[in-house]
């Protein structure tokens, strides 16, 4: 019993700083979703049912830019591929949860992966730890989405510069991760590819997905070259 209490406590303490960060993304998502013509109800419903910061932010940004359903779905499919990695890496640590595993799988994403994989390395399989971390992030994400959507609903987008919130949110998401030549190379390649695509076909629907497929190859090339250098 004490062991369980200890696990819950350390999960809570370790997840709290990240939960605050997730809440700030959730706030942005809520504001942006309303700009993309979602109602408060549908904006929050997406958080309840999808629970993926990257997929949801990309979805509302693409819709606000006039993208269609198919291109949004294809892009998020590509974006979600990394969940395969996370799920595969966490599977052993979640194995003791047996039938609950399918529910816990709903919590697999960037931040829980970071915390849980380091926990599993330290103490072995620990589904309870993962459950507490994922639940905390889930509630932070939903409440922040709701708050953001309510705020966005009350504001005049042009007056408050909410249209600027899209590029600014993505810049704030991108910059901290720009470390190492392969990642910087991927970002630069993405900028060049998307500018070229937009130049020849302004406002086309395929820019994001083609860039998402091609630019990582440049990152891989740089990574391989630096390994063999």
């Amino acid at each position: 019993m004490d062991n369980k209490k200890e696990t819950i406590k350390s999960a809570f303490m370790e997840a709290l700083p990240l939960a605050i960060a997730i809440a700030t993304y959730g706030l942005s998502y809520g504001v942006l979703a309303v700009q993309a013509k979602f109602s408060v109800v549908t904006a929050v419903a997406m958080s309840l049912l999808v629970f993926s910061g990257s997929a949801q932010l990309v979805t509302v940004a693409m819709l606000a830019g006039g993208a269609g359903l198919i291109s949004v779905l294809l892009t998020t499919l590509l974006l979600n591929l990394r969940n395969l990695l996370y799920g595969a890496a966490l599977a052993e640590g979640l194995a003791p949860s047996k039938k609950w595993k399918r529910l816990l799988a709903f919590g697999v994403s960037d931040e829980p992966f970071v915390l849980a994989s380091s926990r599993f390395k330290k103490v072995g399989p620990d589904p309870l730890y993962f459950a507490v971390v994922a639940s905390l992030f889930y509630f932070a994400w939903i409440f922040a989405s709701l708050l953001g959507a309510l705020m966005g609903n009350q504001m005049d987008p042009q007056k408050w510069g909410l249209d600027l919130a899209f590029p600014v949110t993505f810049a704030a998401l991108l910059v901290p991760g720009l470390k190492g030549k392969p990642i910087i190379g991927t970002a630069l390649a993405a900028v060049i590819i998307s500018i070229v695509l937009e130049y020849f076909a302004p406002g086309n629907q395929l820019t994001i997905i083609i860039t998402g497929l091609l630019a990582p190859l440049v990152g891989l090339y740089i990574e391989r070259r630096s390994k063999h250098a």
């Binding site: 990309v58 892009t75 591929l81 810049a171 720009l178 993405a190 900028v191 998307s194 998402g212 990152g219």
Partner: peptide, 18 residues
Amino acid sequence: LYFNYVPIAIISALIVKQ
């Protein structure tokens, strides 16, 4: 690595489009 680089590429492209 490819899967990990995909979000960087997509976010960069979204910024360019804005």
